[in-house]
């Protein structure tokens, strides 16, 4: 893997620090007018999710990490791993719960997700911004109540629970924003 000079490290750079893949969040030069130049970087460790700060000499270098975001189709989960397929190569990878994290309740079979791979191993999974999911459990709909603004909980086919308007019925399909976990609208067949 290529080596990156600290001077060339910018926000977004993916580097290997203490053998873990990390993404640089912020990098800045710290230098007394007449003294040693340092580069202070703030970075997120992909494995732990932790954001840390470390300082290097500006003349130091770090190894680039082979971390790439790949669009992959979610296939299924076997209770231990979530499986994704590259639609071009048909290659499959299994992501564990740590990599899937908060994305789990939004994963619907056949949906395209962004899987962050490090040397081919999934580090992180991001669901699509919007998913369409069927309501499997909710109180009976209140007919015609489209204006009161009231909500009720609804359990979706993936197990996620979202707040939906009172008029919604079981078995209806809704659109959810996965970034906020909020109901966006009803999907008509």
């Amino acid at each position: 893997m290529a080596s990156l000079g600290m001077n060339d490290i910018r926000a977004g750079a993916k580097i290997l620090l203490d053998n873990d893949p990390c993404v640089v969040v912020e990098a800045d030069l710290v230098k007394p007018g007449k003294g040693q130049a340092f580069t202070r970087i703030k970075y997120r460790n992909f494995k732990t999710g932790k954001v840390l700060e470390r300082t290097f000499k500006a003349s130091d270098s770090a190894e680039a990490a082979d971390v790439v975001d790949t669009e992959m189709q979610y296939l299924y989960n076997d209770g231990e791993h979530f499986y994704f397929m590259d639609p071009v190569s048909y290659e499959q990878v299994g992501a564990d719960a740590a990599a899937v994290g908060d994305a789990a309740p939004w994963l619907k079979e056949q949906d395209m997700c962004t899987v962050t791979l490090w040397n081919g191993t999934p580090l992180m999974v991001a669901p699509p911004n919007f998913v369409e999911l069927r309501v499997v459990e909710t109180d009976p709909g209140v007919r015609g109540d489209t204006a009161s603004g009231g909500t009720k909980p609804a359990v979706l086919e993936t197990g996620a629970t979202v707040k939906v308007p009172l008029f919604l019925e079981q078995e209806e399909v809704i659109r959810v924003d996965t970034r906020t976990g909020e109901y966006v609208g009803r999907v008509k067949d």
Partner: peptide, 19 residues
């Protein structure tokens, strides 16, 4: 104080004081 241990390589007293 946050200096990466690898960065110590080649640093003299004044470099450390600068940090």
């Amino acid at each position: 104080l946050g200096l990466h241990p690898d960065a110590l390589d080649g640093m003299d007293r004044d470099d450390l004081l600068d940090f």
